[in-house]
Design a binder for these strands. Structure first.
Lengths: 187, 187
DNA sequence: GTCTATATTAAGATAGAC
DNA sequence: GTCTATCTTAATATAGAC
């Protein structure tokens, strides 16, 4: 089997247990592979498994979020498409964000740079849509951050309340929020 | 020494390494206590340490957030006081939220109910301030959620970018955002 | 209340047969 | 490419002296 075969299992395990909690025993059980076989596919051990998952997520970002943000249509339409993809990725608010999980705990030191890069690319892509839509460059950058903040925060709250509805509400409101004319956040 | 003495060390360790990553060896080193002494203070081991920290955080919420939300002054003033306290708690955006950390990884199953309770109390307290201020009850509940979402999301982003400014920007904007008259999030 | 010493279990990782 | 068996290290936890 190609090592790509095991990515869905790895994503599910790291989401559920985190970096430290997803032990090789759990990974072995979930994939049906013995520990030695896991090291055949991932000689670098668990860190290489996470790197492989991050490669996949980077690709997913490119082929889903960045593609729809660069697609035909007005800003509102393109942002709605992004939200549809995000809703799939996070299973309607029932699954946490792997990037956020990798920022928590002892994995942070190892994977921080990669997560940082994912966030920056995502924020810039949203900001560019808004700039094309006529929004001031600085405000667009803040709105890009606001989008990531709303997604991440609502995922945390949905996890905390064990209720996907905060995420779904935010996802539904987000496109119109980002495209609104005036800043309602003047200091 | 009273076991309360060790709470600041525990908070720092769980914030930095998470539940799984904060090993007894690290805790022993940070506190200067041997492992056996740690079990003298916390017979239930690491889980009892986390429970002790959650007791402290629940108290902190009562004596800081709930107190200032029930204090004298208009809604905007009280929400600004809340934000000041939050800014201290999260060290101006440089420290992650322990509740969020406990929702990630294998700790979630153990402490989810307690974190859930913390979130609910906090959201309700914010909503009540807004209801007193004349905001519709349902909208106030959503605004309470929005506050927690903005805080949690901005802490994640500040961690991800290694830059406290997203948190500080959100904290500064939050009171006026919550008190705004019209919902700019109509569907 | 803190220590040393140790028990027990599980984790990450590898050797080598098939 | 997968396995069994094993190694090494580290984690949680306890016994018992001081």
């Amino acid at each position: 089997m190609l090592k790509e075969t095991y990515i869905p299992y790895l994503i599910r395990l790291f989401r559920q247990y985190g970096y430290d909690g997803a032990t090789l025993s759990k990974i072995s059980e979930a994939t049906g592979l013995g520990k030695a076989s896991l090291y055949h596919h991932f000689p670098g051990g668990k860190d290489e498994m996470v790197e492989t998952v991050l490669d996949f997520l980077q690709q997913w970002l490119d082929q889903n979020i960045l593609v729809v943000l660069a697609s035909q249509g007005d800003a509102l339409t393109r942002l709605r498409r992004m939200c549809d993809r995000l809703s799939e990725l996070y299973e309607q608010g029932n699954q946490p964000c792997l990037s956020a999980i990798l920022l928590m705990g002892s994995a942070r030191g190892i994977f921080h740079n990669r997560v940082n890069a994912l966030f920056r690319v995502w924020i810039d892509a949203i900001a560019n849509v808004l700039i094309e839509d006529g929004i001031d460059e600085e405000l667009a950058k803040y709105r890009g951050e606001d989008a990531v903040i709303a997604i991440q925060g609502s995922l945390i709250l949905s996890q905390g309340l064990n209720d996907p509805s905060p995420f779904m509400r935010i996802i539904q409101q987000l496109p119109i929020q980002l495209c609104r004319e005036k800043s309602n956040s003047s200091s």
